[in-house]
Each structure stands twice: as structure tokens, then as C-alpha cells.
Design a protein around this nucleic acid. Structure first.
Lengths: 191, 191, 191, 191
DNA sequence: TATGAATGAGCCTTCATTCAT
DNA sequence: CATGAATGAAGGCTCATTCAT
């Protein structure tokens, strides 16, 4: 067998697992199926992660990390809070649509995490929320702090809801149109 | 022992299954656990539903039916589209918060259905969407038809997203506050 | 419900069971399937026979009884032992070919009986053997008694073996041709 | 525990299964019982064969293979067709009598196979028939080809029929005596 | 280190049978 | 008498995990 660094192996399993989970859910994603998707022996999966739960948390963290990195790398040209919200909304939907497996897997795993370690699941939610709030605080003219929190939450809720519609219909255009409507609402409200 | 009409028995199993699914998910809800929760022998569950899948679809339909019945029974005093939207948003959140098990189970089952019969899952989504559109069409002054669709979708998305926050935090007050913010957005937009 | 005499009901179940057993074997013939084939409620089957075992023995006896009745009703024109054997051989094959379900069910049930009550299974075998010997004893010129037994056994073995070929191939013509060959052997031997 | 090559393990299960099937039939031979007879955990059986059906076909093939190997290894001293038939008949009966479990299991499995894949069951029958015909063709003086087929079939039928008597009575001597009678018939016929 | 082999626990389902009406 | 309802026992199979090499 070609020697493959463990870290690379882990990554392969994570990616395979995301694909499988998107297809058959967290519980349907048996270690066998994941190993098969990764073209690796079953025992190797346990050699790398010990337990399925470990693998799931690794996926959970990786998905979170990826989104966070994306968010942090983002430089917004937009200035008003409405523009910022609009840009975040649109980009998030586009991102989700371009990576359907990861998108769906994230929902499945979030639900699983919510059942197995509620605190961690909330923490993940807060990571996004905090990033969102950070962007809104950079708005010009500035948004009063007491509105930053609530606007961020509503926008995040909107993202999740539209994402579910994306999962259901897979129709990116339709959802982007709704995002535009939502954006208009935000603009009307924030002005 | 006690002879009970099959229909009653079925209902008992459905209710037990909702509780179990809310706790451990669709796959974690084994027929054994469901039967135990229903204080009934395992074989009786299969006597009533034959397969676990049948039971799940029965739950799926029942949850849909319940929501639909509630919607149809609703008489709105509100007149403007913004008022209507606000009322629907608030009541839906309140409803979800007052029946956390059913609320969560519905999300789990929806995800399961989405994997097992996409068409049916979409149909369910459309049932809600249609009801929503029906309410909006009764608005005074009337909402242009081309906006009914998109507003309904955005509001529905908002409901789903806020519902996820409700599931995550279980904090009804918080979510209702966000619903109020969302309502204000709608009002600003629709005026 | 139309009142049906128990004896008639029993007969319906027996006939249904023969059909089902021929199709799926003794163990595959569940009481449910048999009841369904008989267009009767499952509980009625147990009302008539108490247990599945009882039903099987009833079938066993009925099949034996039918064959015995046929044998007893038979009047042979043939005179020599060879002619008698030939006639018995041919008629038995024809009979088996004309009632494939009963024929096959009899083999299945014989095997089952052989496992569950060897003595009874042997007794059945002896019933046929005795009938066969009776016919051979009527031969003219008479067959020495010490050859009656062995000829009867060989012919009976021949019947069983050819019957298995009939079950395998379902080709009556082919098997009848072999029966003719076997008949020629007997004739050559007995002369 | 002890690491054993899978092929060896498979063989152990096959042998255990033959014993169990001979005792309780194909359907009575549950995977649990077979595993117990093989002194192995149930899961190991499924690790080796995946399904019970696979195991049954493996047994089917193995029994066929064993018989075929025996037949192919056979060197007949006999010269006339009658002698050849006699030798085959006797040896087959002796073989069956010396391995009662395998003999009975083969009948049970043949019946099962006949229900589950008729074509395969027939093929097995033909394997024996062809071997038989091969031997008869080596007879000296040669048997006309048109009689090879029919004689082979009749002898094979005789074998099956006598085998059933062996299963019923377990009396090897008795059956061998009948084989002798049958042999005499063949001799009388073929001369 | 990697991985084929092995397994205890548990899942869904079905069966013959009995109960209650 | 007749039957829908109910069930303990068991069956085939799969799973995450561990063992042995």
C-alpha cells in the first residue's frame, strides 16, 4: 500500500463521509459505506478516528471551519447595513448551491449534534452569528448596537430558511429571487 | 389484552413515535423504543403498521394534516398583508414552541422524507405555501399577485429559519422578538 | 358470514395448503398464506385445525387416502406380472403429471413427516408397498412370493425416481418413455 | 478469536449446515443453529456468507462438486453396460449409506433449489446424467447411442428412488438387495 | 502501520398461536 | 360459532468496534 499520511487519510474520510451523509443521512452513513466511498478499508477508518462519533465531530468542525474561513476572508465593499446583509445573503445562498453535498450534510450533522451535544451545536450557531454581527458593525452609517443582534439573527434565520427551500427544490434561481425580496425588506426596514 | 380499535392503537403509536423521534431522531427511534414509549408490545406495532416506514409516513401525514387543519380553521382579523404576515409568523412560532416534540419530530421526519420520497416532501412544503398564499390573497388593500408568491416564500423561509433557532435555543421569547423584527421588515417593505 | 360446515372448511384449507406447499414448501407455507389462498380468515384456520402441525398431518393422510382409494378402485386387466407392473408404472406417472401440485406437495410433506414422525412416514410408504404387492400377487402365472417383495420395492423405487425427474423437468412425455424402458426391463427380467 | 483463513471457516460452516439440514430441513436450519453447530458466533456466519441463501448455494455446489469429483476419479473395471450400471448403482448406494447426513441434506437442498432456481437445479441433475452417460458409452460391446440416454435416465431414477427408500428405512442391506434385483433387470434387458 | 477477520449487541420483521368479543 | 386484535418467540441480517497479525 502506498503510504499515505494520516492527516490526508482523515481528510479523505471526511470528504467521503460528507458525500454519504448528504445521500443517506447521518445514521444511514455507516462506517462501511463511508470507507467504501473513500476507497479505503473499513478498519482504516477506525484506525484514523477510533469511533464514528469522532469522525462526525471532525466533520462538524471542518464544515464550521470552512465557513468561518470564508467569512473571515471576506472583504466587503458594501457600506450600508442593507448592502452588507444583501451581499452576505446572496453569497451564502450561492455557496450553498455550489456545494450541495456539504450544504446538506451540514444540516444533517447539525441536527445530529443538536441531539448529542446541544452546547456544541449552539456554539456553532453562535460562531456564524458573531461573524454576522461583526460585518454589520462595520456598516456606515453605523447600526445602533441594539439592532445589530436582532438584525443578525433575523438574517441568519432567513439564510437557514431559504437554505431549506434550496434543499427541497434545488432551484438556485428561485431562492436567489427570494433572497432579493428579503434584501428589499431589509433595506426598507433599515432605512 | 384490552381490545382497542386499531385506529386508536395506531394513534397511540404515532404519538409515542413523535416523542421518541424528537429525542433520538428518526433512525434512533427503533421500533422497540417506540413500542416501549407506547407501552405496547413490539409485535403490536407491526400488527398496526407492518413496517417502520409505514409508521413514519403515517406520522408525516398526520403532522401535515394537523398543521393544515389549524391553518384552515384560522380566521384572521388582520387586514393588511403586513398584519396577516405578522399574525401568521407569531402564531406559528407560538405553536411550535408549545409543542416542541412535534415541532422537532416534524423537522426530523421532513429530512427523512426528503431522502426517501422527495416528491412527497416537496408536496408537503407546497401545502403550507399554498395556505400561506391563500391568506395573503385576502389582504386589504390587495397584494399584487406577482408579489404574493415571493412574499409567501420569504415568510415561510423566515418561519423555518426562526424555528431552527427555536430548536437550538428553545428560547421562545427571543425568537418571538426576532419575529417582531421580521414583521417590522415586512411592514416597511409592503408599505 | 355464510355458515359453512366445518368439514367443508377443513377441506378448503387442505386444498389451499397443497397449492401453497407445492409453491413454497412446507415451511414457506405459513398459516397466513394458506388462509389467504383459502380466502378465509387466519383465525379460522386455527379454529379448524388448532395447530399447523395438525393441518399438515391432515394433508398427509388425505394424500395417502386419495392414492389408496385410487389403487383400491383399480381393476387390472393385465395378467402377467410384467403387464401389471407396466400398467401401475404408467398410471402412476400419468396421475402425478396430471396433478402436479398434489404430487409435489406429497414429496414435500413426506420429507417433513420423515423428520417429524419417522414411523408414520414409513407406514405410509408401506401402504403403497402393500397395495403394490397385492397387485403383483394376482399375476398369472403367479410370481414366487420371495420375488413379490423385491419386485414391488424396485418398481416403487422406480416410481419415486421417475417422479423426481417429472418434478425436475415437468416433461411427462420424456418420463413416460423412460417408464416404457423400465417396463421392458421388468419384462425381460420376469420372463 | 483464532485467525482462520476465510475459506476454512466457510468450509466449517458448510459442514455444520449439512448436519443441521439433515436433521431439521433447510428452513429449520436457522443461521443461529448452524452457527452453534459450527461452534462459531452467528455474526461470523454472515461475515463469511452474507446471507443464508449464499450459504445454501455454496452447499449445493459443494455437494455437487464432491459427487462429480468422485465420479470423475472412478475407473471402472466392468466392461458390459450391465456390469457398469450395476457397479454405479451399488457404489452410489454405498456412498449414500456411508454419508447419511450429506445424502439427506442433498435431497433437502435439491428440493429447495428446485423452488428457488429451477434452472440451476436441473443443471445439477444433468451433471449426474452426463457422467452416467459417459460411463455407459465406454461399455463393451457398445450400447447404441439412442439407448444410452434412456438407460442412463432409468438407472438414475432407480438411484433416486432407492435412495429415498434408504432415507426412509436406513436399511442399507435391504436397499442393496433391491439394487441387485434392479441390476438383474438391467442385465436381462441389455442382453 | 495497516488491515482482513471476527463479534456482541441490536434492528426490523414474521410466525404460530391465543384472546376477547 | 367465527374472527379481528394481540403477542412471545424467533429469524435473518447489519452495525460499530476490536482483535491479531
Amino acid at each position: 500500500m502506498a503510504h499515505i499520511p494520516t492527516e490526508v487519510r482523515r481528510q479523505q474520510f471526511i470528504e467521503a463521509a460528507i458525500v454519504v451523509i448528504a445521500r443517506v443521512g447521518v445514521d444511514g452513513a455507516t462506517t462501511r459505506r463511508i470507507a467504501e466511498e473513500a476507497h479505503a478499508p473499513l478498519a482504516t477508518l477506525h484506525y484514523c478516528f477510533q469511533t464514528k462519533e469522532n469522525l462526525l465531530w471532525a466533520i462538524f468542525e471542518q464544515l464550521e471551519e470552512t465557513v468561518r474561513a470564508d467569512l473571515e476572508a471576506k472583504v466587503l465593499d458594501a457600506k450600508t447595513a442593507a448592502d452588507i446583509s444583501a451581499e452576505l445573503l446572496n453569497e451564502t445562498i450561492r455557496r450553498a448551491a455550489s456545494q450541495p453535498a456539504a450544504n446538506r450534510a451540514q444540516l444533517e450533522i447539525w441536527l445530529w449534534a443538536e441531539r448529542n451535544d446541544q452546547a456544541l451545536a449552539r456554539r456553532q450557531y453562535d460562531v456564524y452569528l458573531d461573524a454576522w454581527k461583526g460585518f454589520l458593525r462595520a456598516a456606515e452609517p453605523p447600526l445602533p448596537e441594539d439592532r445589530v443582534e436582532t438584525v443578525a439573527r433575523v438574517v441568519l434565520g432567513l439564510v437557514d430558511g431559504l437554505n431549506m427551500q434550496l434543499i427541497t427544490h434545488g432551484d438556485e434561481e428561485l431562492v436567489l429571487r427570494e433572497a432579493a425580496t428579503a434584501t428589499a425588506m431589509l433595506a426598507a426596514y433599515l432605512d
